Simulated assay, not measured.
Amino acid sequence: MKKENVKLAMAPIGWTNDDMPDLGAENSFEQCVSEMALAGYTGSEVGNKYPKDPVVLKEYLDIRGLQICNQWFSSFLASQPYKQVEKDFRAQLGFLKAMGADVIGPSEQTSSCQGDLHTSVFTGKAVFSTEEFRALTEGMNKLGHIAREEGMTLAFHHHMGTAVQTIEETERFLNDTDPDKVTLLFDSGHFAFSGEDPVAALEKFISRVGHVHLKDMRTNVFNEVKTKDSSFMDAVREGVFTVPGDGSIDFPSLFTILDKNNYKGWMVVEAEQDPAKANAFTYAKMARDYIRINAGI
């Protein structure tokens, strides 16, 4: 891949898990960003332990040669009044602009089961009515327009447990949104967990990809949690996800597709694991070495 086109970031979720705070509770924000930089990354997404004041956060990051590239945004366009979602979106957009980021990554959380420990992610995912799906796509077009006006890119995050999880649902979402306003946050791990082929998904959606999450999946663990009909959080605790090169996903093919299509932007290593079982710094270095060898960056 062309080094001038792609920047490499690391997500803090390997150090501290926002959805399950006991995972990595012992790890500080300072340790997290220091180890990211030491492992060879130049960017980071935002975790709950990060300072909320952009001036304070920027000082911590600048000295380590890191910048914020994106932040998750929980949207509820299918269940909340649009004006409330827009208010929350604008507030987060303002924070990201102050940090010099150029991407915001919404995921629609209406009826999502991803954080519900008592619901199977295999049978309990959100399914939208026609009206709910229309509220999502029309609202996302509006949010995408706002982001564009602020010089930023909206990259929508398909996600396990939500109403936009599968290739079919993602295609419907993209067909019903404006490509000038809404791009896709491609997540290899979520397509794999959903039973899809991440390589086929990237081939299909590459023209709309605005941000990339590099997440691997351990097939043996996936088979176990599927047999148990586990929740998404329980699957994470069991170690279903890992960093590129440590699971079953064909990352060299993904890198080839991105390179052939002249992808420009961030690639973010994201692997939510229990750091007590999978040391975050060790796995960050492992992923960095793998990407250097297999993507040439």
Rank of each mutant, 00 (worst) to 15 (best):
M1L: 12
K2T: 09
E4Q: 09
A9Q: 02
G14P: 01
P21S: 07
A25I: 00
N27E: 06
S34C: 08
S34K: 09
L38A: 09
E45L: 02
G47A: 05
P51D: 10
D53W: 11
D53K: 11
L57Y: 10
Y60N: 05
L61N: 10
I63L: 12
Q67K: 14
S74N: 15
S74A: 15
S75C: 10
A78R: 09
S79K: 08
Q80F: 12
V85H: 09
V85S: 11
E86Q: 15
E86W: 01
K87Q: 13
R90D: 13
A91T: 15
A91V: 15
L93F: 09
L96S: 11
K97I: 02
V103C: 15
V103L: 10
I104K: 00
I104L: 12
Q114W: 15
T119E: 13
S120W: 12
V127K: 04
T130V: 14
E132T: 09
E138L: 12
N141S: 13
N141H: 13
L143V: 07
L143N: 08
H145P: 01
I146K: 10
E150V: 12
F156S: 00
H159G: 04
G161T: 15
T162H: 10
T166Y: 13
E168G: 03
T170Y: 15
E171V: 08
L174D: 13
N175F: 14
L184N: 07
D187P: 02
G189K: 02
F191T: 14
P198A: 11
E203P: 00
K204F: 05
K204N: 06
V212K: 03
H213T: 15
V221S: 02
V221Y: 01
F222P: 00
N223Y: 10
V225D: 03
K228S: 12
S230M: 05
F232G: 00
F232I: 07
F232Q: 01
A235M: 12
G239R: 11
F241R: 04
T242L: 02
P244S: 11
I249L: 12
D250G: 05
D250M: 01
F251W: 11
P252Q: 13
T256Y: 06
L258R: 06
N262D: 08
V268L: 00
P275Q: 07
T282H: 07
R292V: 00
A295W: 00
I297D: 02
I297E: 07
